[in-house]
Nucleic acid binder design. Structure first.
Length: 255
DNA sequence: ATGGCCAGCATCGCTGGA
């Protein structure tokens, strides 16, 4: 069982790459972020031809999330954080093969102290509160997505330069720890990993070539799923593509 | 030398991302 997450930064642009990647990797469940497509434009048929059924919640231009499933159609689909009114399509959840799959695109936050930063912290707080009840209902739960938070210093190419900046500020990192406090495990850190492994590199400044990146895309697993997790890695190859997303996929394998 | 890119929308410059 392979679970994956990938911020594709426009599904329209990245669809050919994504279809190639699905054929090469054969993931069972894929969470996508930043599809940037209205639901009527979602390429449902292309995915069905590739053997995947999809659940999606999109909007024009910004945001947009989707879950692809190779095993069975996503069931009990819900979009958004219940009780948290939000025009931005950032969350979708579905049940697949007895697992509750939650696909999230956390707000970026723009800069510390901005309105968008306040929205980010409020959004993550609402997510955390909802997940507590969701975990009580679904012991086998995975939260996959673009968290826009680098949790620890090893997740940042230059921690000194990033200290206090958005994506690595203490309130954001504390909010990430609140998710771990629910009993979730960072699948990537369950295993030995190569030094300086990141999931996002700025398009500018030759950041990818210089490996000036951040690890901000994560797979958190409930204890029941963490026990079954046998591997987790970042697929850096996808970032080498021509016209790549600025994010690389993260893949977890479960027994 | 601290900026360089990319996608979308609607032009021929802006917003937003991270």
């Amino acid at each position: 069982m392979k679970l994956a997450t990938w911020n594709v930064n426009s599904l329209k642009v990245r669809l050919p790459q994504l279809l190639d990647w699905l054929a090469a990797q054969h993931p069972d469940v894929v969470c996508l972020q930043e599809t940037k497509l209205e639901d009527k434009a979602f390429p449902r048929l292309e995915f069905e031809s590739a053997g995947y059924r999809a659940a999606f919640a999109g909007q024009k231009t910004y945001n947009g999330v989707a879950i692809l499933s190779r095993l069975q159609p996503p069931a009990d689909v819900s979009a958004g954080i219940p009780g948290f009114a939000d025009a931005q399509q950032r969350l979708i959840a579905a049940t697949i093969d007895g697992m509750r799959i939650v696909c999230a695109y956390f707000p970026n936050g723009q800069s510390v102290g901005s309105d968008k930063y306040a929205y980010k912290l409020k959004w993550v707080g609402a997510l955390t509160a909802w997940l507590e009840s969701e975990l009580a209902r679904h012991p086998r739960l995975a939260l996959l997505g673009d968290y826009n938070i680098a949790p620890e210093e090893p997740d940042v190419h230059d921690p000194q330069a990033w200290e206090g900046q958005v994506l690595f500020s203490e309130p954001e990192r504390t909010a990430f720890r609140r998710l771990l406090d629910l009993g979730l495990k960072d699948a990537f850190r369950l295993f030995d990993q190569p030094e300086k492994t990141y999931t996002w590199w700025d398009y500018r400044m030759m950041a990818f070539r210089r490996n000036r990146g951040l690890r901000i895309d994560h797979i958190l697993l409930s204890q029941d799923l963490a026990r079954d997790c046998t591997a987790c890695r970042v697929d850096k190859e996808a970032r080498r593509a021509e016209r790549p997303s600025d994010h690389a996929p993260v893949i977890a394998e479960l027994k």
